[in-house]
Amino acid sequence: MRYVSTAALWFAGGGLILMTMFISAQVFMRYVMNDSLVWSEPASVILMGWFIFLGAAVGIREGYHLSFDVLLYFLPAGAKLALFSVSDIVVAAFGAGMAWFGTELALSAWNVKLPSLGISGAVDFLPLVAGGCLIFVFSLERLVRRAAGLPTARFGETEMEDA
């Protein structure tokens, strides 16, 4: 799991760097060469999808998504853990939905050619599918870890690991 998460984070970081290169190239080509790149905008938007959904999935595992813990202050530890598990089940279900319906969207856009890029419209939805799968898997991992009595990271409680 740890390797999957690390790989996803590296992949997402690569997307951010690639996007930086695309936009700088666009500025350079337009201003210096007077020859705008027509693909830099749609390509950047797709890259953004990649690092948002992959990064969001890693966030499930590392517990850096924002949450609101007001009610939980007043509950005993056992009830708290039960509610965290309810949360993880909801997140897992939503991740499964992202993967399932993302696939449906990708299939329906399969034959649509994206303007300026010339590739299949399915690419638009692949980040949603990949991110959804990882969110589902990482949420299950949290449930299993909790059942086994191991700690699970939560927003504001744990320092992010920098592996």
Binding site: A56, H65, F68, L71, F84, V86, S87, V90, V91
Partner: peptide
């Protein structure tokens, strides 16, 4: 409900 049980905000909205 989801917000109160500590579900991450994004998933509260989505779910």
């Amino acid at each position: 409900f989801l917000l109160l049980i500590g579900t991450p905000v994004a998933f509260c909205l989505g779910a």
